[in-house]
Design a protein around this nucleic acid. Structure first.
Length: 294
DNA sequence: CAGTCGCCCTGCTGGC
DNA sequence: TGCCAGCAGGGCGACT
């Protein structure tokens, strides 16, 4: 369940290990992860072969690798996706879906044999995928609707607060709306709401300005804390960029803690259904909004 | 237009 | 023991 901190960790790993390399072969083992490439898996593979990766960028939970001709490989990890940098002799993992074989990208041959490297996309549930974004190097048009994330220096706090307060939906729903603010998923939304001591079902247009500001600050706190841990989890050769390991070791305050005591007040954490998933909160620290009588 | 809902997909868990 | 329902959930298309 990669959210912003996990995806950013992946991006940093890719920036270090695949930028500058040339794609020498592409192997699509399952068609679903390349479903967004309308021309099909074979075309996907043919188009990428021979091209050089120039950068590794991210917006929200999307990643993209600008190529030398201005196009880009656009990636989303979905729920269970992983991008792994692995030596070619490492056995395939169970849910390997796409393999990009990488050359070293140097014009002159190196003195010693460079160890062949692969960029592997593995994904158990296949909600994620890879696609080619024509002219997408700067910002893929497919994700132009995705807002900046709260860690982005160009994130506009005042605009976010204003938009939050003019929308009528429940607060948590808006935290998950990637057009408003990106990078937040179900887990960090619950964690941020607990920190801000607000219930996710609060109607956002009735928040005080100071409460909206506090929500944003709480989101930043939670994301920054997780990012600080996620960044420590990969080594130089085998880059496990799933984020899963650092992720569950992280101390969560409410997510997944149904029935356990709130670390602030001791009240048992509650789980409620929300958009075909779950929300966790402390009923004392985060009281449900009172129902309006009219 | 904003808001809301259901679907995509696999594997694990728990109930009977 | 085996089967099946339920759950995990980001994003998008299709509704109201």
């Amino acid at each position: 369940m990669p959210e912003l901190p996990e995806v950013e960790t992946v991006r940093a790993g890719l920036a270090e290990h695949v930028v500058g390399r040339t794609i020498t072969a592409v192997d699509v083992l399952h068609p679903r992860p390349v479903r967004r490439h309308a021309a099909g898996a074979e075309d996907f593979a043919a188009r990428l072969t021979g091209r050089r990766i120039c950068d590794a960028r991210r917006r929200g939970k999307y990643l993209w690798l600008p190529l030398d001709d201005g196009d880009a490989i656009l990636a989303h990890l979905g729920m269970s996706g992983q991008l792994l940098v692995a030596p070619a002799d490492l056995p395939d993992q169970r849910h390997l879906r796409v393999r990009l074989t990488l050359g070293d990208g140097q014009v002159a041959p190196s003195r010693c044999e460079p160890s062949p490297l692969e960029l592997r996309f593995a994904d158990q549930r296949m909600f994620g995928g890879l696609s080619i974004s024509p002219a997408g190097a700067e910002l893929p048009p497919e994700i132009a609707h995705i807002a900046r994330d709260p860690i982005d220096p160009e994130f506009d706090d005042a605009l976010f607060v204003a938009r939050l307060r003019q929308r009528t939906s429940a607060l948590k729903r808006l935290l998950l709306d990637q057009r408003l603010v990106s990078g937040i998923g179900n887990i960090y939304a619950d964690e941020a709401l607990w920190l801000a001591m607000l219930h996710g079902e609060r109607p956002s247009h009735r928040l005080r300005r100071s409460q909206a500001v506090e929500v944003l600050a709480a989101v930043r706190t939670v994301l920054a804390a997780s990012l600080a841990q996620g960044g420590t989890s990969f080594d130089a050769l085998y880059v496990n960029v799933n984020g899963e390991s650092g992720y569950f070791e992280r101390s969560l305050e409410v997510y997944g803690r149904e029935g356990e005591p709130c670390r602030r007040c001791g009240t048992a954490i509650v789980r409620v259904p929300f958009m075909n998933r779950s929300s966790f909160y402390c009923p004392t620290c985060q009281p449900r909004p009172r129902r309006r009588t009219s």
